[in-house]
Amino acid sequence: MDLSAINPVLLVASLMVAATPILLAAIGELVVEKSGVLNLGVEGMMITGAVCGFVVAVETGSPALGFVCAALGGAALALLFGLLTQYLMSNQVATGLGLTLFGLGLSALIGQSYVGIKAPATPRLEIPLLSDLPVLGRIVFSHDLMVYLSLALVAGVWMLLKYSRAGLILRAVGENHEAAHALGYKVIRIRLTAIAFGGACAGLGGAYLSLVRVPQWTEGMTAGAGWIALAIVVFASWRAWRVLLGAYLFGGITVLQLNLQAAGAAIPVEVLSMSPYLITILVLVVMSAGRARAALNAPASLGRVFHASN
């Protein structure tokens, strides 16, 4: 085994890229769940974003426009979920799973004629001087814009939830929708906004896959990333910074296990291959064991149907 072949700087740089799609989707889902809505359709919204972003970027030649449309596509699909769960009061778990089916089918139909086409390149942001710094330059200052945007989103959501009035209202709606309603807040409108935001983030995450990380369009290309994003929100026990931690941990182990394989580590490949999932469980156990009942951090109204006449 030749562990010296693994360059830690490059490892960190590529784990950031690997984690960005799930980070984007997870931070969006965090906001949705904070408002008391459980949308299990992340996979469907991601893949819809992936195809919308890809198609638009190919047709217009502009990745930026692709990302915008990916966010819109994801949000549109999310609003379908919102319509069903908020106005028609359908079961959120089942509707979310249905949304995944719907999104996978829809995206495959839209993308039919885009298989095997190359996407226009998304430029890496080379910041003069800073990018040339040793270690830090490669890790911090030479990514594409979306990596920075994902980090900014985490910071933004954290600040929103912690310091802003809007965040307080959002949390109130998620904790006790009846009380929030009684206080005069428009529960449904607030939730719809959160749902649309979650969809837009998932769409961006999907487009990051189809435009930057992979980049190509193929049916079912998200290959379960949406589910991982959902797990990351739980892992984070509904805290913004821990979403970042969870996504980077998961992405990091994924990249590390591949690196260990390439370096010929004397660990069975099967074990390496399942390690991202096992380690995520392990870390969560350690964290939840330390703090009594960390799992109770879930918003109290999560997944509950709200009806104003209740």
């Binding site: 069903l84 009061m89 089942a94 509707t95 799973l97 089918g105 495959a108 139909l109 009806h307």
Partner: peptide
């Protein structure tokens, strides 16, 4: 028909079933 169309169709069926569930309770 492509299998994607069937998936989409199944998704729609679920949506309608779930959405209309409401009328039993409201």
């Amino acid at each position: 028909l492509p299998s994607a169309a069937i998936q989409l169709f199944q998704g729609m069926l679920l949506f309608f079933l779930l959405a209309m569930d409401m009328s039993a309770n409201y």
